[in-house]
Design a protein around this nucleic acid. Structure first.
Lengths: 159, 159
DNA sequence: ATCAATCTTGATAGAAACAGTCAGGAATGA
DNA sequence: TCATTCCTGACTGTTTCTATCAAGATTGAT
């Protein structure tokens, strides 16, 4: 498993915009330069983010993009859904139970494993906000999964 | 994010072999039929699983594949690593810090977010064994991430 | 020895997803 | 009127994933 470039880029774009929250709109050109990502590609992602209602755009000479809501109220989950459609695609869920050509039919003790994983990942993404990222506290947000991570991390350190 | 077919197939193969643990080896042909996956593709996956030391093979008329260790001692993590190389590919880790053309350079408040996610996912995979899957208790294994999931699940149900 | 069953290996090919590019158009503000 | 900037959609190249194929090596049975 891995994070796609689109998600990576989109997260960086949103973080950059969060940093400018309250100021004048930022142009795609500037965002592209600061994130070192092709401007055309950036524009494509920005469109998706706008359509998802996460950012607002303004055309014209002083135009650009700005966050539609405060950083604390925008989660990573929302960003990922905006560009990728869903946070975690369930293999088993793709086919109706028994119908179509789902290959699991007789043997689905595995399905719950993927479902749990999906829940875990989704919960993590929903628990991280742009504000959390700005303050570099990726795990110290509201989500239960993140809370677990904090506990696990301190436990691993042995103290 | 999603689970790849290879991982899905490999997991099902290993589960099938776990069910036959202690009995005679199972041929690729039979595994293919029971899992409804092309036999050539199955063979390819089985080779990877063997090279990773998770299963053993025997050629000849009564040949086939068998688990190299008891189901309880083989984790999903090991299976995934065998076919995919790693459980979770870190976007940021791909480039040396500052060298190459990692695009994150100036702006890596995001990196910890992916790292935490990777840790979470990896820990989950390591906590699920083939024995757990056979007994359909995907979250009730030793791993801390899974333990968290159990708690979260019962909490969500409200009781 | 011979034969059939089975695994082994590497090459190859098709399909899908991903990443990135391009061009023409529409709105905005100076 | 004009430069700036966003808008839209089509397009292309690359990589990864999935699957197939063919020739060879090993084993056990006869």
């Amino acid at each position: 498993m891995r994070i796609t470039s689109s998600v990576e880029y989109a997260t960086r774009l949103m973080t950059a915009l969060a940093r400018e929250h309250g100021n004048a709109p930022v142009s795609a050109e500037r965002l592209s330069a600061s994130d070192n990502v092709p401007v055309d590609y950036v524009s494509q992602l920005l469109v998706k983010l706008r359509r998802a209602g996460l950012i607002e755009s303004r055309r014209g000479s002083a135009g650009g993009y700005a966050l539609a809501r405060p950083p604390a109220s925008i989660t990573l989950g929302a960003v990922v859904r905006a560009v990728d459609g869903e946070v975690f695609e369930d293999v088993c869920g793709k086919y109706q139970k028994g119908t179509k050509d789902c290959r699991h039919q007789g043997d689905c003790s595995i399905s719950p494993v993927w479902k749990k994983l999906g829940a875990l990942v989704t919960q993590y993404f929903e628990g991280v906000s742009l504000a959390d990222i700005l303050e570099e506290r990726p795990g110290r947000c509201g989500g239960a999964a993140a809370a677990f991570l904090e506990r696990a991390a301190s436990g691993e350190r042995g103290a």
